[in-house]
C-alpha cells in the first residue's frame, strides 16, 4: 500500500461520519427546496396553519373588536342623529305603513263578513237600528267588534293548580301547564303582599286580560279580549258567581257536567 492509498484510507475512516451527516443535511435541504418550490407540497404544509389562524381570527373578532365597534357606532349615531333618522325614516315608515295596511285589511274583511251575513239576526237588527238611529251600519259593526268577549274559562283548584273544568273556543298552549303557572303566579303575588287576605284579581297581557275570581277551594280564570271596563267586570263577576252557585257547588267532581254547562252558559258571553 502506497502512502497516498494509506492517506485515502485514513481520510475515509476519519471523515466517514461527517460525510454521512453532510449527506443527511443535503437530503433535508433537497426536501425543503422541493416543499418550497412545488406548489402542491407547499400548500399541504401551509393550508392547515392558515385555516387554523383564520378560524381563531374569526372567533376573536367579536371579543376583541366587538366593544370597540359598538362604542364607535354608538358615538357615531350620537353625533349624527339627523343622518341616522334620515336613513331609518323611510324604512320604518314603510314597515309601519305595511303593518297598518295589513291590520286595516283584516278589519275591513271582518266588517264585510259581518255585513254580508244577511241571514243572521244581527244583520237585520243592525239594519233596522241604523235606519232609525241614523248611525251607519259600519259604526255598529265596529262597536260590536270592540266588545269584550270571554275566550277561555278555567276552573282551577286552589293550591294544586289542577284544572277542575275548562271552556275554550280557541286553541291555546297546554292548559294544565297554563293553570299551574297561573296558580304559581297567583300564589307568588299573594305571598308577596302578606297584609290581609288579598287576592290577585287581574293579569293584563297586551290585548288580553285574565280575570281571576276566587272561591274558597277553587278559582275561576277568565281570559278576556276587548275593552275590560267596570261594567263588563261587574257582569263577568255576577255571571261567575251565578254559575258557581248553580253548577259548581254541587258538582265539583263532575268535570263533564261542569264543562257542558260552561259551554252552554258562556258560549255567547
Amino acid at each position: 500500500m502506497t502512502d497516498a492509498e494509506k492517506l485515502t484510507l485514513l481520510r475515509d475512516l476519519l471523515l466517514d461520519e461527517d460525510r454521512n451527516f453532510a449527506n443527511k443535511i443535503l437530503e433535508k435541504v433537497d426536501t425543503l427546496t422541493d416543499t418550497v418550490n412545488i406548489d402542491e407540497k407547499l400548500s399541504q404544509k401551509v393550508e392547515p396553519i392558515i385555516s387554523r389562524k383564520l378560524t381563531s381570527f374569526v372567533e376573536e373578532i367579536p371579543v376583541k373588536l366587538g366593544p370597540t365597534i359598538t362604542e364607535a357606532l354608538s358615538e357615531q349615531i350620537k353625533n349624527s342623529q339627523d343622518e341616522v333618522v334620515n336613513i331609518l325614516f323611510p324604512l320604518l315608515g314603510k314597515m309601519i305603513k305595511k303593518y297598518i295596511q295589513s291590520e286595516m285589511k283584516t278589519l275591513s274583511d271582518n266588517i264585510n263578513a259581518q255585513i254580508n251575513q244577511k241571514l243572521s239576526f244581527k244583520y237585520w237588527y243592525r239594519k233596522i237600528m241604523s235606519f232609525f238611529s241614523g248611525v251607519s251600519e259600519i259604526d255598529f259593526v265596529l262597536a260590536d267588534m270592540a266588545k269584550s268577549k270571554i275566550l277561555q274559562l278555567f276552573i282551577i283548584e286552589k293550591g294544586s293548580g289542577l284544572i277542575i273544568a275548562r271552556y275554550s273556543n280557541t286553541d291555546t298552549i297546554d292548559e294544565d301547564l297554563l293553570a299551574g303557572m297561573l296558580t304559581a303566579i297567583k300564589s307568588f303575588v299573594e305571598d308577596a303582599f302578606i297584609k290581609g287576605d288579598q287576592n290577585l284579581e287581574l293579569i293584563e297581557y297586551e290585548l288580553y286580560k285574565i280575570y281571576l275570581q276566587n272561591f274558597p277551594t277553587y278559582y275561576i280564570s277568565a281570559v278576556i279580549s276587548g275593552k275590560f271596563d267596570a261594567v263588563f267586570k261587574n257582569r263577568v263577576e255576577n255571571d261567575l258567581f251565578d254559575f258557581a252557585n248553580k253548577h259548581i257547588k254541587k258538582n265539583i267532581g263532575n268535570k263533564q257536567y261542569i264543562e257542558q254547562k260552561l259551554k252552554e252558559y258562556f258560549i255567547n258571553a
Binding site: K158, G159, S160, G161, L162, A184, S187, F188, E190
Partner: peptide, 10 residues
C-alpha cells in the same frame, strides 16, 4: 320554601 307552592301536592 314558599308554602303556597307546596299546597295541593300529592
Amino acid at each position: 320554601l314558599r308554602p303556597s307552592f307546596l299546597l295541593g301536592t300529592s
